[in-house]
């Protein structure tokens, strides 16, 4: 039953990603050329509602489906890793035109070349695991 719920949430998310065109390479390109409000409006309205929802969850000490108070972990403090990692991610996001959510969405849609991107992303994650902590500024 619980598995079904997660599958359902994912399906809902996938439909939203496709229909909103956040999964379109063209929309990502257009965003980085500042030639449309579309992606900014999409992220902006998601954030506006997101911030309100999280504040509501915190101020009411809302409980999750299991009855535990919802606790959202804070991110570790650092600047370097977020900035450098973020830039590396952004380079790939613009090049492939897909971030990790839309990758799966487009693979499901039937764009087989997306499997090359996913393979790259898995290997990229693996490489990070191999060099992390030892050789990278954090």
């Amino acid at each position: 039953m619980k598995s079904f719920v997660f599958l359902f949430v994912g399906t809902f998310f996938g439909i939203v990603m496709y229909k909103s065109e956040a999964a379109s390479w063209f929309r990502i390109y257009e965003m980085f050329r500042f030639q449309s409000i579309h992606m900014y409006g999409l992220m902006g309205s998601a954030l506006l509602i997101g911030i309100l929802l999280v504040q509501f969850i915190k101020s009411t000490k809302m409980r999750d489906a299991q009855g535990n108070v919802i606790a959202i972990p804070n991110k570790e403090k650092s600047i370097k890793r977020y900035l450098i990692g973020g830039i590396v991610f952004g380079l790939g996001w613009a090049l492939a035109g897909a971030c990790p959510g839309p990758m799966y969405v487009l693979a499901g849609t039937g764009y087989l070349p997306m499997l090359v991107v996913i393979l790259g992303a898995v290997i990229g994650t693996w490489i990070y695991g191999l060099v992390a902590k030892k050789k990278l500024p954090t």
Partner: peptide, 22 residues
């Protein structure tokens, strides 16, 4: 496509999240 994926995978783990997480 492969390099695009590589950068997304490496960068998202280094930054500790992607567009959804961050």
């Amino acid at each position: 496509l492969f390099i695009g994926g590589l950068l997304v995978g490496f960068g998202s783990r280094y930054a500790g999240g992607c567009t959804s997480g961050h």
